[in-house]
Nucleic acid binder design. Structure first.
Lengths: 220, 220
DNA sequence: CAAGTATTCAAGTGAGTGCTATAATATTGC
DNA sequence: GCAATATTATAGCACTCACTTGAATACTTG
């Protein structure tokens, strides 16, 4: 009985495992998070990953055969992007589950944000409210291209290298809130540390373009 | 800049990849689906999988070190169970994503349910309504132990081997709806085929205990 | 058409994985 | 305590995977 279904089940779970295998490498997971920000070229991904171009290309090939990403050519570059929003939802699920199950991961993340000057992150719902009534100065500290692709409504683009220049002579009493790529990105942490050094009220949030309630292409 | 965060990112994504690796094997995915029904012993899982006990034990060990499952002893048996509801949600996410991304999987599933006598499955919301007003006879064709652990409200336990006996002399005009473990289980299909042969109005649903809106331990 | 550049292919290596078969380790029931 | 049984550990095999290196491909630009 159960035996007569064996072949079919093997095939079915074999297919699901194609997706599972794609999620089995740290590099590939990081690639998926990066592509969740914005489509990127192989070279750019390799630079972000600190990996060789050839190696990055191979990982992208695997993600591609598992249908998690797709590519098209733009000029001399091959631009990779997530195959669908379902992929961003999938990686979010895996990361959520990991945080729920692995104490090590929670500890590791606390270690990254453990400096006493790193205030608690601003929760998503509070951010929503504060931005709506313009009570905070929301900055997007990712590279400009990622801001251009998609950003939180009301946010100002201040890439990390521009931070000092942007806040030179800053005297507004309005508190600053910084966001970056999300949970596993330290840009916002670095920004907040710098602003604190300058005596500017600042806080980070773990919200990112992934979490924001998106109406299609509303890039306010 | 990005380089100074490298070590931390490697560790973080390494942790997430622990969960990813656990999802990278067809056998382990099937184990997670089976444990989503009910906690089971190694021996029982091995029988369901058509795998050796030793091999099953090894897979369970991997799932265990990734914290997706946990175990406790009952008599001479070691009973494995999902570590938390988050694991069931995770496997559901992976399967959802696979179905959204892999045409092969959709085709494969259609092949399993492609017989013209297999009517379209009853959607979850319709099932909810029909059960609420007692317009259908809902049968749970999984093994009795899984029914005992958890079942849809209003369902009657009719394990597949008991099907013929249960419906001998059946004359009610009420249509039968059969459910089993879910999307990748063929028990409900087999039950509906049999009932059709007997001239009984029957339909399957892909709803399962995983999909039902559960209030805690309401096993109506 | 030629040069330059972005990407992919191919081969090689060391580590890891899935499976089998066999032995070892409980733990229960007599 | 001894036999029976459920589970896990160990060793070995074929295979896959991640990464590196060096060459090949494809496309743009002059």
């Amino acid at each position: 009985m159960s035996d007569s279904h064996r072949g079919w089940k093997d095939e079915v779970y074999g297919q699901v495992a194609r997706v599972g295998k794609a999620l089995a490498s740290p590099r590939r997971l990081e690639i998926l998070d990066l592509l969740g920000q914005e489509p990127k070229s192989v070279e750019e991904l390799a630079r972000e990953l600190g990996a060789s171009v050839a190696n990055t290309s191979q990982h992208l090939r695997q993600l591609s055969t598992a249908r998690l990403v797709r590519s098209h050519k733009r000029g001399t570059y091959v631009i990779y992007e997530l195959a669908s929003p379902a992929v961003a939802a999938l990686t979010a699920s895996v990361e959520d589950a990991s945080e729920a199950l692995l104490l090590e991961l929670v500890a590791l993340r606390q270690r990254g944000f453990g400096d006493p000057t790193d205030a608690d992150p601003l929760p998503l719902d509070q951010l929503h409210a504060l931005v709506a009534c313009q009570a905070v100065y929301l900055i997007d500290v990712r590279p400009a291209a990622e801001y251009a692709a998609r950003h939180l409504p009301g946010a100002v683009s201040v890439p990390l290298p521009m931070l000092a220049e942007h806040f030179r002579g800053w005297s507004s009493p309005m508190p600053v809130v910084a966001y970056c790529r999300g949970r596993y990105c330290l840009y916002a942490r670095d920004a907040v540390r710098f602003l604190h050094q300058q005596g500017i009220r600042a806080r980070r949030t773990e919200a990112s373009v992934r979490d924001w309630p998106w109406e299609e292409s509303a890039t306010g």
